[in-house]
Design a protein around this nucleic acid. Sequence first.
DNA 1: ACGCTCGCATCAGGTGGGAAACGG
DNA 2: CCGTTTCCCACCTGATGCGAGCGT
Length: 600
Amino acid sequence: MLGGEGESTSFSSKEAAGDRRKSPAVEAEDPAAGSRYTEHGMGADRSYYLHSTVSKQSPETPSPCSFIPYTPCGTVYTPSSATRYPSSLHLGSVLPPAGFSPSSGRSHFSPAYQLGQSPGCLYPPYTSSGSALSNLNLPTIGPGMRAQVYLCNRPMWLKFHRHQTEMIITKQGRRMFPFLSFNIAGLNLTAHYNVFVEVVLADPNHWRFQGGKWVTCGKADNSSQGNKVYIHPESPNTGAHWMRQEISFSKLKLTNNKGTNINTSQMVVLQSLHKYQPRLHIVEVTEDGVEDISSEGKTQSFTFPENQFIAVTAYQNTDITQLKIDHNPFAKGFRDNYDSMYAAPENDRLTPSPTSSPRAHQIVPGARYAMQPLFQDQFVNNLPQNRYYNSERAVPQTNSLLSPQAEDATSQRWFVTSMQQGGNGTSTNKLDLTPYDGEYSSSLLPYGIKSLSMQTSHALSYYPDSPFTTMSAGWGSRAAYQRKVSPSLPWSPRPSTTTGFPEDLDKVKAQIEEEVNGSASLISSWTETQPSALSLDKADSYSTACKRRRLSLNGPITEDSISDIKCEDLASAAINSSSYIKDAPSSKCMAAYYSFYTNP
DNA sequence: ACGCTCGCATCAGGTGGGAAACGG
DNA sequence: CCGTTTCCCACCTGATGCGAGCGT
């Protein structure tokens, strides 16, 4: 079942004979799967750490990212027909414990591989069992190291997650929105990896939207068939490649057509009204993409609970619908006041919003990019005044600025090391954002956040597979967009891993602090603003943003860029480990991100 | 002449809404 | 009857091709 159809297509040109399998093409009953990883510290106490048995990993090797608590209760429901990768490295959001201290970091990078679970171990609640990330360091480069994965558009996922994300599935396949987008660090630069996403049942229930909320309704149909794996089209590729840029799965499509033979490699077959959990798998393979089964521990899996969603054939929750409309550029036609968004008076366009969020100054360089307000709800909570204020779509600075995650400015990247998400025993699957809010500033600021301001001219495709994201990856030609990047822009097409960091640190920090100051509403619930309340303010702010966009050729760095910078930094720093790992301004940057996850 | 940038037009494909169809 | 699924629609984005303009 796992990866059946998809893999064949993806690797058809690289078929390799022999007994070696191609990842993720693996027999469902891979005997090694269940024992691929060893776990340590399993016990009643949730606060312990696991050391995976990733091959070549030296136990003594201090981890760049430390200690992430592991919780025995898994997040992903694993029916009897477990896939080959039951041992999900569950990398929940990093939620430092209450006692989080900048100096409390530990030095062991401990991917917490979760062994296969019985169906009885159901979807565990998202918890904030803490982990201090203060001593976060950039990943070391070398064989056997564990990967660290960052969910690039996590804030957006969180917005949806608050209302229980829904994903449309159709016969011909529907893209996910938000889509999965990651940054990976800690890979061996020269080793080859397959990167793919597997979508597994998150719990054993059938769901129904009733009375304005999702309720369980019977048991899930475990007999699902069809492809559950989407292999990144760039697979296989080197660690350097994967770490060089954001890894987007925007082309991944969800379908309920089990019999489809069309584009099966792009399709993940799901069942409506079932809850799913995407997993990211990174499998070390040979150069031709063949997984070498002779060595264990070359598979690492990452799970972000906020990526969970319920597959539907029609949206059930209007909040989700509104979020989709507001965020997805392809749904722009359904936005209210769209026509008026560009009709605001000149002065309105140039005048910062009264409530000027920290993004007020995020004037975007590259006015050429007459982009639409994609960042409008970077923080939907700022609605209505700020909702569309900083709706610049084009921020030609990083590889993801035009991507939806770009709008999620400050906390855009979510670093996940080998951590097992904790479970707190609650029954909700929603991420608890309350502590997130509360600790937003308290944990973030005190620790001397210094983000790296890596300026790039990455342009801004809404999707991560934007020109700059993909150009180096060879995903089709996007010259038409690439060339639009003005050479006069002060940043380079590819983020320099070194230049410009120090001098921008303060600037970035200041911006982050501004974010923090305005964070009260940042994380507030979307429901605070009814969809129907998309007021005229929206149009005004929209217009303002658009105007600003047009006129701001050389504005200051945007938060979006900062976020991407961080993201890029992490990856590029990993590539250029020598000079920055130690100083690790990026570490602090990452720590800052971590800080968004806090415990009450 | 050549290469590059830029603007414009075209087209494929993605989007949610809504009505119709389907099925228990 | 009611919940779910399918299909079509209008609207939009993004990719691409082409030609004009510019600098070397």
